[in-house]
Amino acid sequence: MPRYIWLAVIALVLIVLPFGLKGYTIYILSLAGANILSAVGLNLLMGYAGQVSIGQAAFLAIGGYTSALFMTKLGLEFWLAFPLAGIITGVTGLILFIPALRLSAIYLAIATLGFGAAVQQLIPLPYWSAIFGGHQGIKVPRPQIGGFVFDTDWELYYLTLVVVVALLIVSWNVARSYIGRAFIALRDKPAAAEALGINPTRYKAYAFVLSAFLTGIAGALQAHLVGHISPGEFGLGKSIEIFAMVILGGIGSLPGSILGAVFLTFLPHWLAQAKLLYTFFYGAALVLVIIFMPYGVWGFFVRLYYRFPAIQKLFPKGA
């Protein structure tokens, strides 16, 4: 099966990758892993289920603070605090889902925007600065399983790799199942979807919970990678960045979200010297993609694939 050969090649590359790279690059690569989860999480919600959210950074914050505080304040082990961060963020996804039941796309976008702003404003309030650390934020402990502490860049990379691959498989399973089809059906023809027995409330709830869960894990991952967390990381800019990853990669395409996330994670580091240039490229890339690749980078590849038989021979269908 050629598909398995390609997967094996990709796996091998990802495993040996750190051996040829500088520590800092490995670290950025791990951060890209966290962003992949955020982008896939938003794509399932927005691209599949058609529910626009521009407050995803709030879920990152909730996931990050939960994992950190469960370890430092409640003394939980990492392997318990980390998944709980995802689950608790998933539950807050249900809160965001309640307005989604009644609101049309544009008002939902505004509601999620408000949610994102509220969370970012609430965290640094002085009432609970003993817990959340105010604007300065708090230190986040390194992941530790048994006696093993993940404290080098490449140890953290492998931890990230396992988490990201596992959750991509989960996302893929859901997207290709009756649940993923129900998302698309409700997005495109809600009346027809309901007439076939799809309960819109239930499936919108699934989409919000799954999206929040993935983003919560991404937030926890990022917090543990960076070793520190503060509210400044979770502004509107971060939400828009996740949004841009989805649009850039191709809305409704999970491989596209992976590309979009990796690209937009590395871009600012490539252009680190020239802050102005970064903003320029960032904007220019988005505009170009929207004009020339309306289905995102991945959609562009798919079209090339169907246009040129030579590529089809190289990558047989289903690969």
Partner: peptide, 12 residues
Amino acid sequence: LVGEHRDFWAHP
């Protein structure tokens, strides 16, 4: 397959 939606009962 969406037509068969009511025959999918596997837990999410």
